[in-house]
Design a protein around this nucleic acid. Sequence first.
DNA 1: GATTCGTCTATTGTATACAATGGACGGACG
DNA 2: CGTCCGTCCATTGTATACAATAGACGAATC
Lengths: 248, 248
Amino acid sequence: MMAIQDLRGPPAPQRHAAGVVAAAGFRPSGVLAEELARFLASEIIFCEIAPGTRLTEEDISARYRLSRSPVREAFRLLAADGLVVLSARRGIRVTPVSLRDLAEVQGCRIELEGLAAYQAAVKARAADLAGLRNILEQMGAALAAGDARAYFNHNVAFTTRIHLASGNATLMRLLNGIGKQALRYRYIAYQRVPQLMRVSLPGNRRILAAIRAHEAGRAREITAKLIRNSWAAIEPHITGEDIAPEAE
Amino acid sequence: MMAIQDLRGPPAPQRHAAGVVAAAGFRPSGVLAEELARFLASEIIFCEIAPGTRLTEEDISARYRLSRSPVREAFRLLAADGLVVLSARRGIRVTPVSLRDLAEVQGCRIELEGLAAYQAAVKARAADLAGLRNILEQMGAALAAGDARAYFNHNVAFTTRIHLASGNATLMRLLNGIGKQALRYRYIAYQRVPQLMRVSLPGNRRILAAIRAHEAGRAREITAKLIRNSWAAIEPHITGEDIAPEAE
DNA sequence: GATTCGTCTATTGTATACAATGGACGGACG
DNA sequence: CGTCCGTCCATTGTATACAATAGACGAATC
């Protein structure tokens, strides 16, 4: 005879974060909600989940064998980063990409990335300069090897390092809130316009030079110009107002 | 004899959002997490919860007779707005106010509020102009009546209306993420330096004039200047690096 | 006395069950 | 045939129970 509790399925002892063997490359180690948010964020940024896709908490929770609590929390984090749009009792939608959204994101980035470069130049600590130079070298190597994906990753690291060098925690929080959304467009750019690398590398070198020389205003200007460049490069590749509105 | 379930206390039928009679002026109507976040945010902004105060999910959940789920979610929202700092298994701390934090917040605001004013001036829709003029009149009335609190509220409304007029959803999201933290300092300013009103009102009038005249650059400049003014006015009233580090 | 180690406690992290609600769908009615 | 209304379902919102862990506190050891 079965025990009473079997009537409602296996009791599924709470495993918490330990020993979860989840699907499709998602290997949680620490806090599930954050890990899941990071994982889904990269899926969205690299277009492995298409813009406009509809998701539900239940879907994800079943797919990765988690309870709804961390899944729900993960979606709130993604929403705060602008990667998904929540609508009460109607599911969750991966934020569509559009020319309008691109313009909004880049417009804000020009101000905030510019400010970060400015403040980094004012401070210009030796450790930051060394770190930035190091990353630039890796970017150069990736460019030489023609590895757009590696270049992209190092480029992101370079940007993040500048944020850190600004020493402004509030600014970093804001940039984090827009940076993930921006990454979607930046990824499209490097995927579709790999030759962007050739313009970007010298530009980044000049940013570092300006920071090293404490020329804050110039660091800001170059940063703004680079963003405008990549903006212009991406624009032709965003189709219409709304890409991929049909969910899978 | 008592029923078995009585051994672990009253079953407390799930009331969801209906009929909750909570403590201390908190009257939830819609989604509990959001209502609670709004309520706690205002408590923090108006210093009814002191900077540096330590809280726990359990505390709040007991105080307002809610389960931990919405409480937890509310705290995540507050953390995203920079009003509290979460530390795993060590409780939640109301973000302290400090000169450094003030500088970070105002530095970012100059860029973002400036951009909002700029874009509002580029668009300058009739409805927005009318709305702004209307709010300015209320500000004038509050100033005439010497009502600093009312002036503060209208001033916040004015700022928010400009954000809206920019028509930039991403910018609004970012401003929302920093605005609440900024409000704490803005409130301190109007509380401690009520004469700030006399400078602020003409400044805001000039912003509206610039927006009406489509003079985007000027709108941005005036906005930046006003923020610098209030920054300078607040600074002397923030004591040292960290105010009120002792919890109640 | 200082140090190390275990245990205990406070607090968050996760799982699950139940409530509420917006929208879809179909039937009754004109 | 179109419109309105009720029912049902998918989905999120909330409540609660249980697991894990960081830090405190004390006892044993040297």
